[in-house]
């Protein structure tokens, strides 16, 4: 397994853990209020910590364990995998933004809008990382 694939696995686990915690603990009953928005924004602090700490620790661990792999530049196959994953992630991103516009027009805002934007980013990232892992496993 290449260094980049390992980092992708850590990112996938980190995304699921951090944003799983966020969506399970968000106070949905006050979402459509200014307080709901502030809570959503403040909850991003622990989310960032939950996501970044394993990413940094994992990257450092694998880089120390196999520095040669960590120093390797992305080759053409990996660039192709990278581009395919990013391309696939565009669709949920576009749908999420449209959904957010629809929600704002229909009187939902504050925490709902922030949370839908966060969910859009998370789904897009999960599709990007997940599809790239699939391509890494498949070979291309």
């Amino acid at each position: 397994m290449s260094f980049r694939e390992k980092i992708h696995w850590i990112a996938l686990v980190g995304l699921l853990s951090a944003f799983g915690w966020y969506f399970l603990n968000y106070p949905w009953e006050i979402a459509n209020s200014p307080k709901g928005m502030y809570i959503a924004v403040w909850m991003l602090l622990p989310v960032t910590i939950i996501f970044l700490v394993p990413m940094v620790a994992g990257a450092a661990f694998f880089a120390i364990r196999s520095p040669k792999d960590a120093d390797l530049k992305e080759d053409e196959r990996e660039k192709g995998i990278h581009l395919r994953g990013t391309h696939l992630a565009y669709y949920p991103l576009a749908i999420g933004v449209q959904l957010n516009i629809f929600v704002l027009i229909n009187g939902f805002n504050y925490g709902y809008a922030v949370t839908i934007l966060i969910a859009t980013l998370v789904i897009a990232e999960l599709i990007r990382v997940g599809s790239q892992l699939y391509y890494y496993r498949r070979g291309y």
Partner: peptide, 19 residues
């Protein structure tokens, strides 16, 4: 060649068409 070991493995197995 300037690619990763995994890329050589994928080419060998016929999973990836190299440039």
């Amino acid at each position: 060649v300037g690619v990763t070991r995994q890329t050589i493995a994928a080419i060998e197995q016929g999973k990836y068409s190299p440039s």
